Simulated scan of single mutants.
Amino acid sequence: MTIYCDESGGVGAGVIVVAAISLPGTMADELLTRIRDVIGLRGELKGSRITMAERAFVIELLARTGARTIVVQALTRDLAAAAASGKPPSDLAIYAHLLEHVVDAWLPETGGCVELVIDDGRYDARLNSMVRDDVQRALGQWGKASLADSRRSAGVQFADVLANSFFQMATGSDRAPRLETLMAPFLENGAIRHLTIKAIN
C-alpha cells in the first residue's frame, strides 16, 4: 500500500496539519488526469490555488474512488500549554512527530507492507532527509519511507489539497464553514479520520 503525505501550516501559523492519503492501485495518476481535463488545470494541483467548487470536485472524486485519508494536526497553543517550558516545540519536531503519528495510525490497516511517500518541499535537502530517516525508523521492517517532488507525484498533490483544507478549517478561514460541510460525510463514514495531537513527549 502506498500512502502519500503532505502538510500545511507551521508554528508561525498556529497549526501544522499532515494529510496522509491512500488510493486504490495506480489510480492517483488517472484521477489527476481526469481533474486536469475537467477543470482545465495547468501545473500543480495545490489546495491554495483552487476554487471552492474545484476543491469539492476533487474531494468528492477521491471519495467516490475509495480513497482513504488520515489527517493529523497539532495546534501550537496546545503543545505550548503541555510543555514544561511553556513554549511549543520547533516546526521540525512537530512535523516529524505528526508523521510518526501517521505511521502509528496507518500501520495496523496496511497489513505490514507500506510505502510512505513524503513531500520533499518543506525543508532543505538535509532536513528533509532527516525527516525521511525518522519516518523510516518508525516504519521499521514494515515499510519504506521516501521523498517525492510534489510536482511529479499525483498522490502528494491530493494530500496537499486535503492538508490545506483542514488547515483552513483549523485557522477559521472564510471557507471554513463550507469546508466543514464538505468534509462532514467523509468524516462520518470513516473515509477521512481526523486526529489532533495535544502534546509531544
Rank of each mutant, 00 (worst) to 15 (best):
D149T: 11
Q73M: 13
E115M: 11
D29M: 01
V38E: 15
S22I: 03
S150W: 11
R126N: 07
S150I: 03
L187S: 04
S173L: 02
A159P: 02
A13H: 14
P24A: 10
A19W: 07
N164I: 00
E100Q: 13
A154C: 05
Q73D: 01
L45H: 10
Y4E: 05
V117K: 08
P185H: 04
T65G: 03
R49F: 07
I35A: 01
D6P: 09
R49P: 00
K198A: 12
A184Y: 00
G25D: 15
R152F: 13
L182F: 04
T26M: 08
G43Y: 12
R175W: 11
A176N: 13
A163I: 06
A20I: 03
I50K: 07
M1A: 13
E44R: 12
A138V: 12
S173V: 03
D6L: 09
V17R: 03
P88L: 06
V114Q: 09
G140I: 09
G10C: 11
W142L: 12
G9W: 10
I118L: 15
T110V: 07
F166M: 12
F166C: 02
A148D: 04
M1T: 00
V17Q: 01
T76E: 01
T171M: 08
S150N: 10
A81K: 13
A19N: 03
R175L: 14
E44I: 11
S8Y: 07
I59W: 01
I200N: 00
T2N: 15
S165Y: 04
E188N: 11
M27I: 02
S90V: 02
A191D: 15
F186V: 04
H97R: 13
L92K: 14
G140N: 08
A53N: 09
T26E: 14
G40M: 07
D124W: 05
A96H: 09
A74F: 02
V102H: 06
V114P: 05
V17L: 00
G10V: 03
Q168T: 03
G111H: 05
G12E: 14
V131E: 06
G40T: 01
V103A: 00
S85V: 04
K46N: 10
K87M: 10
S173E: 01
V15A: 03
G121N: 10
L61W: 05
T110E: 12
A145H: 10
R42P: 03
R152G: 13
G140E: 05
T110H: 03
S146H: 01
V18A: 04
